[in-house]
Design a binder for these strands. Structure first.
Length: 214
DNA sequence: AGCCAGGACTGAG
DNA sequence: CTCAGTCATGGC
């Protein structure tokens, strides 16, 4: 039994990302940085109510106004600037054109945008553009470190390669895999909540990532 | 009352 | 290059 099968049997399909449009994914990816998703929902609701959830409105609005809209998401002054930068990139690089470009140069270009780190870049690539770029977040690292499947001092790229080395590069698989790991993390892998005894992955032993193998 | 949440940037060593 | 400090709201 592999990790993927165990998680999918336990939680079922997650239907990520929770957004109505790819652009909303991009906005959410920035707003959720180190922030609870419930707070992001309020910020996005504010943007929708103000009819400001479009590149045009966000790029012409003053940063102070953007900050007021996204206030519930925290770090609002910081994120107002990051949001502006990412939205500017999105408008200059529409999905129709971006979809045809090689993945790694595209990823590097996203990383060069202010406020876009590895997780945000991969989230945009995977969930807004449907590209096979595996997302590693705090839950992913904590889960795998606790099980001894990655080194505790491992960085983002090292953990990501653990997945991409073993998995077929398919966006639907990466999509579901990351969403399942987040769901597992929320219930069983909090920092100071060692109820790892109830973790569905408890008795898996050595690392088996691949979706199909038994 | 703290601790935490689907991080990333900056400056110092 | 590694790493503490910084950013900020809302839930539990």
């Amino acid at each position: 039994m592999t990790i993927y099968r165990r998680l999918h049997r336990r939680f079922g399909p997650r239907h990520w990302w929770p957004a109505e449009t790819p652009f909303e994914v991009v906005v959410g990816a920035v707003l959720t940085q180190n922030t609870a998703w419930t707070n992001v929902e309020r910020a996005i609701a504010n943007l929708k109510q103000a009819r400001a959830l479009t590149p045009e409105r966000l790029l012409t609005a003053p940063l102070t106004q953007i900050a007021r809209w996204i206030r519930p998401a925290g770090y609002f002054n910081l994120k107002a600037r990051r949001l502006w930068a990412v939205v500017a990139w999105w408008r200059a690089n529409p999905p129709r054109v971006t979809r045809r470009r090689p993945l790694l140069p595209l990823r590097q270009e996203l990383l060069d945008v202010y406020g876009v780190g590895p997780e945000t870049a991969d989230s945009i690539l995977l969930y807004a553009l449907g590209r096979p770029s595996f997302v590693v977040d705090a839950y992913t690292k904590r889960i795998f470190a606790r099980h001894g499947w990655v080194r505790r001092e491992a960085g983002y790229d090292e953990i990501q390669q653990t997945f991409t080395r073993a998995l077929p590069a398919r966006a639907p698989l990466y999509n579901e895999y990351h969403a399942l790991l987040v769901e597992l993390g929320k219930h069983f892998c909090r920092p100071h909540q060692p109820n790892c005894q109830a973790c569905p992955l408890r008795d898996l032993g050595t690392l088996r990532l691949e979706p199909g193998a038994r």
